[in-house]
Simulated scan of single mutants.
Amino acid sequence: MNYDLREVCANFALRGDYVIGMPFGTGHINDTNAVTCDQGGTLVRYIVQRINTNVFRQPEQLMENFERVTSHIRGKLRRERKTNPATRRRTLELVPAKDGRPFVRDAAGNFFRCYVFVENARTYDILETEKQAYEAAAAFGGFQSDLADLDGRLNETIPEFHNTVSRLAALENAVKENRAGRLAEVSAELDFIRARASECSTLLDLQAAGEIRERTTHNDTKLNNVLIDDLTGTGCCVIDLDTVMPGLPHYDFGDMVRTGTSPAAEDERDLSLVTMRFPMYEALLRGYLAGAGNFLSPLEKSLLPFSGKLITLEIGIRFLTDYLEGDVYFRIHRPGHNLDRCRTQLALVKSIESQYDAMRRLAEQL
C-alpha cells in the first residue's frame, strides 16, 4: 500500500474518528479497505477503495456515473420507505469528500472513493443453489429497473465493452499478426468461432434498427457483485459499480448465464465437466424477470436465451485473442491459461446450443 489510509480518510466527510483500516474482500482490480470509525462509542464501518486508473482511465467520469446511479436509486428509496422499509439497503451510500466531490485525489494522483459498509450481508464467489441464482438475478434485474428512468446518458467508461463484432475483429487481427507464434494450436477454436460469426452482430443490428433499446446496465453481473442478506438470503444490494454505463440488458443477463450455470471453473481443463445446468438457468431467468418488472419489451425478453450464448462466445473470443497476442491483458497462472479459458467458454456455448430450444420455450412461457 503506497498511501496513508488514515490521511485519505481525513479528506472524506466521515462521521466519527478513524480507528483502523484493513484490506477487505477478494477483488483484483481496485484496492479495497474496510475502515472502522468511532462515533461516540459506536463503531461504524466504511469501505474505502483506491480506483485502479490503469483499468479505469477516466476516474472522474466513473465517479460521476457512480454518484448519479446511487443518488437516483436512493431518491426512489426515500419515496418508498414509508411502505417498504426493507428497501433501505438497495444501493450503496456514497460518502463525499469534504470538498463535496464524490472522490478524493491525493498528492500522488491516486483516486479514492468511500461508501457506507453494508452490514449483515455478504457476497458468495460460487453459485451453489437455485435460490442464490434467483436472488442474484432478481437483484440485477431490479437494479436495471431502478435505472430505467434515469435522465440522460451515463459516461461510457470502457468504450465498446460488449461490442461482440469489435471483439471478433480484434481476434482476426490477432490471427493476422500472430505475435506469439501460437496460431497453429488454435485452428479448432477458430473454426468454432467463425462458424458463429454471423450471430455476433444480432443484438447490435437490432439496436441500430431501433427494435431494442440501450439501457443503463451493470456489465459485470457475477454472483459476487450482489450482497446477500445474512438473515433472509435475499439479494439486497448490487455492488462493484465501476462498469455501470450504457449498454443492452442482454449483456447483463448473458453474463449471468455464463458465470452462473456451469459447475466448472472458468479455466477447467476437463471439458466434460462444463455444462449449462438448466435448473440454474431457469432460476436466473425467473429471478431476472421478477426483478426487471415490465420495462423490457416482448422482443427484448425473447432475446434473453440468445444472450447467454452470445456473451459466452464473446468472452471465449477475448480469451483466444489474448492468447494469440501473448497474454497481455488477462492475468495468467500457467502456460496456456488463456487457451484453457477459451476452450471452457466454447464448451459452454456448445452446451447452451444443445439446450437452446428448451431455453426458448421457457422464456416464452414466462
Rank of each mutant, 00 (worst) to 15 (best):
R6S: 15
E7D: 14
E7N: 15
M22C: 11
P23I: 06
F24N: 05
N33Y: 14
N33I: 09
A34T: 11
V35A: 01
C37W: 02
Q39C: 13
Q39I: 11
V48E: 00
I51C: 01
N52Y: 06
M63L: 15
E67P: 02
T70R: 03
R79G: 11
K82E: 10
K82I: 10
P85Y: 08
A86F: 12
R89Y: 12
R90G: 13
R90A: 12
T91C: 15
P96A: 08
P102I: 04
P102E: 00
P102N: 03
P102S: 05
V104W: 05
A107I: 13
A108S: 14
A108Q: 15
N110H: 14
F111T: 07
F111E: 04
F117M: 09
E119Q: 13
N120V: 11
L127H: 01
A133G: 12
G141D: 04
G142Q: 06
D149C: 10
L150S: 08
L150H: 07
L154C: 08
E156C: 15
I158T: 07
I158W: 01
E160H: 13
H162Q: 07
N163M: 09
T164Y: 01
T164E: 04
L168W: 07
K176N: 15
A180K: 07
G181H: 08
L190N: 04
R194Q: 10
E199R: 10
C200R: 03
L203G: 00
L204R: 14
L206D: 01
R215P: 01
T216I: 14
V226G: 03
D230Q: 14
T232V: 07
G235T: 07
V238N: 02
L248M: 06
D252Q: 04
G254M: 01
V257I: 14
T259W: 02
P263C: 08
P279M: 05
Y281W: 08
A283Y: 03
A283Q: 05
L284K: 00
L285M: 13
L285Y: 04
R286S: 10
L296F: 06
L299W: 06
L299Y: 03
E300T: 06
L304E: 02
K309E: 10
L310M: 11
L313Y: 02
E314G: 02
I315S: 04
I315F: 08
G316K: 02
I317V: 12
D327N: 09
I332M: 05
H333L: 10
H333P: 04
R334V: 11
R334K: 15
G336Y: 03
A347M: 06
A347L: 01
K350V: 00
S351F: 00
S354H: 09
Q355Y: 03
R360P: 03
R360D: 12
R361E: 14
